[in-house]
Design a protein around this nucleic acid. Structure first.
Lengths: 253, 253
DNA sequence: TTTTGTGAAACCATTCACAGCC
DNA sequence: GGCTGTGAATGGTTTCACAAAA
């Protein structure tokens, strides 16, 4: 599987620059750079150095530069990066120049919150439809959208040109929902249910499991607390505030 | 890197096996194995092969075996792993044998949902206190807990022996909240606000950004749709259901 | 024979350090 | 002089393939 397509050196004249395929690790960081850049732009910065931008995104500058170099980047030596230009570059790369439609399935506790999350709209997505399997919830109005029954999924997905499905159901129904999404032509799924989904090749699934995040933190807590018992000590106490002041100003959600 | 502590084969009789430090990638997968194991146990399995367990956890078996070998694992050649034993091992490693207290700050849209999320309680955590900066919300009863003002954080953190803080506030206040958590002695933070936090050494931060997940999916959508335009084609259509049947049965949340 | 545990190989990601350009 | 872009070095992760154990 190793090599990418041979087509190679992407300095093509005309249209689309034919997406060089980026390392996954880089892709996962681009959204973070984008957020930091938007903050900088709002604060009135025209250019930014790799050092500054890296700081605002929480990475080191070498990594940032290497990441950006993969996009065939647009920096100027001795100066830095043009903020506006870089925003455009990254938004194009992430496919955010078209606002993608998202279907949210499961309007329970979490689904309800996601449906109301302003961060989606403000970062390039449009929640286009809400679904639930429970007939009692169908018709409910959430954030300006009516909840529809999941059996309507296929019709709505086409009509609203849904690209991405978000599953916020209990684990027991998640696979059925995934099957329905795939059958409706959805090829990207964000899964909040704590279970593994199986989907055909060509469909991407990303999983977010809130309890897993806590468990990972728990591991480190566990390790830290057993270290304090050790000879070397490592300074056990609550460690007075050190937090370096940050340019990061943050737009409201 | 290769070798763990020289003390090696940890069939020690008495006390704590003194945590070998695991690769981060392994730590991040243990919770997934644990979930799969709980499902298997509920389904009545006593033992499981690496192949089966890997399938249920969505990884390949070589990776699973290497991960488990880092815990000085307890498999039997020719047979597989003892499910109950492995559950204990992983729970111990993750520090889940003690139920950790969690403070949740910010009871807006998302915070509200997190406060009601049953998955936390069922997987080793106890939401011990809710906080908000908005006086209008203080006193509100959510899922059996009263919302308290954030100025009480330090007192409550000690009284309830809070180990982990969850930030579900807007980005603009997240750094202040993080500072307050750190000052109160919290050394692990799960941050849902879309911003970078700076914290002293020794404090762990994990970040979950819902919009970032969608943006990563968007990238792959973008790539897929530009590939369909290419000569090779790669089979563009919605691809009929292939989803292999899975043992995965899933406990309700 | 089945299945684990693990060296060795391959792969991917991060960091270093500096040449090249502004 | 300052800063980007990038080869080369390093370090971590995944995969392979098989010896050893039950």
């Amino acid at each position: 599987m190793s090599q990418h397509r041979p087509g190679g050196p992407n300095g093509r004249a005309g249209g689309v620059p034919a997406l060089p395929d980026l390392p996954e690790a880089t892709v996962a960081r681009l959204p973070e750079y984008l957020r930091a850049l938007h903050n900088l732009a709002e604060a009135g910065n025209d250019t930014v150095s790799s050092e500054e931008l890296a700081g605002a995104a929480g990475v080191n500058s070498a990594k940032l530069r290497k990441d950006l170099s993969h996009l065939g980047s647009y920096g100027t030596r001795g100066v830095g990066y043009d903020v506006a230009l870089l925003i455009d570059q990254i938004e194009f790369t992430l496919g955010l120049t078209q606002r993608r439609g998202v279907a949210l399935v499961g309007v329970g506790n979490l689904g309800h919150a996601l449906a109301g999350y302003a961060g989606f709209a403000s970062r390039g997505f449009r929640i286009a439809a809400l679904f639930d399997a429970d007939p009692a919830r169908v018709g409910e109005l959430i954030n300006g959208l009516h909840v529809r029954h999941i059996s309507d999924l296929a019709d709505v997905a086409v009509a609203e040109s849904i690209a991405i499905g978000v599953i916020a159901t209990p684990a027991a129904s998640a696979q059925d929902v995934a099957d329905a999404l795939v059958a409706a032509g959805v090829t990207s799924i964000l899964n909040f249910a704590p279970c593994v989904l199986s989907v055909p090749d060509g469909v991407d699934v990303r999983k977010v499991d809130l309890a897993v995040e806590l468990q990972i933190l728990s591991f480190h807590e566990h390790r830290k607390s057993s270290l304090t018992a050790l000879p070397g000590g490592l300074g056990g106490g609550p460690a007075g505030l050190v937090s370096a002041a940050e340019p990061e100003e943050a737009v409201g959600t």
